[in-house]
């Protein structure tokens, strides 16, 4: 899985209300509609600024707050390729793996807003093309790699009929 795009930078503790506000998420299962409001409270123009495969780059504790799976889905449907952060909140992190939104833990201080990035998940490396550096990535737990490789938790269940990590 490879993604190439521009970095959109955010700070620490970006919560799921900021990713997709409760006032929208209860109304619909239409993720394309929800995607238009993604990150709206932090950057009202975010949705229109994103090009296919661009990357959200944030500080620590990204995705803290609620368990809403609409958060990773709205990011995914806004055409964001992956989220890079120093650390993630745990429910959000699981939701990303389950729904197939790539999340990468790395030192995001090495990335500036607008930097051109190339993310190679298979090789576990990020290339900051603008800065001319490679950034190492913290590997995922084996269980999560298995779920991601199956395409998310739903395909995993279709394949095995339940959890199968052997």
């Amino acid at each position: 899985m490879q993604y190439r795009g521009k970095a959109h930078k955010f700070g620490n503790d970006v919560n799921t209300d900021y990713i997709i506000s409760g006032k929208y998420k209860f109304k619909t299962l239409d993720m394309k509609e929800l995607a238009k409001h993604v990150m709206e409270d932090l950057d009202p123009d975010f949705y229109s600024k994103v090009s296919q495969g661009d990357l959200i780059v944030a500080g620590s504790n990204f995705g803290c707050g609620s368990s809403r799976e609409q958060a990773p889905l709205a990011i995914k449907y806004a055409n964001v390729g992956a989220v890079l952060a120093k650390s993630f909140a745990r429910i959000f992190y699981r939701n990303c793996i389950n729904t197939g939104l790539p999340v990468v833990e790395c030192d995001t201080d090495l990335i500036a807003a607008g930097d051109e990035l190339e993310v190679d998940l298979a090789k576990g490396v990020i290339r900051n093309i603008t800065a001319g550096i490679e950034i190492p990535v913290k590997p995922l737990p084996g269980v999560m790699i298995k779920i991601l490789n199956d395409g998310g938790l739903a395909p995993h269940f279709r394949k095995y009929g339940g959890f199968n990590f052997d």
Partner: peptide, 20 residues
């Protein structure tokens, strides 16, 4: 503990959940 909708569905079907 809190989980997302997909984990919830997995729990509803299997009665099990993986945890670290």
């Amino acid at each position: 503990t809190g989980v997302g909708s997909t984990d919830l569905a997995g729990g509803m079907i299997s009665g099990r959940m993986w945890f670290k």
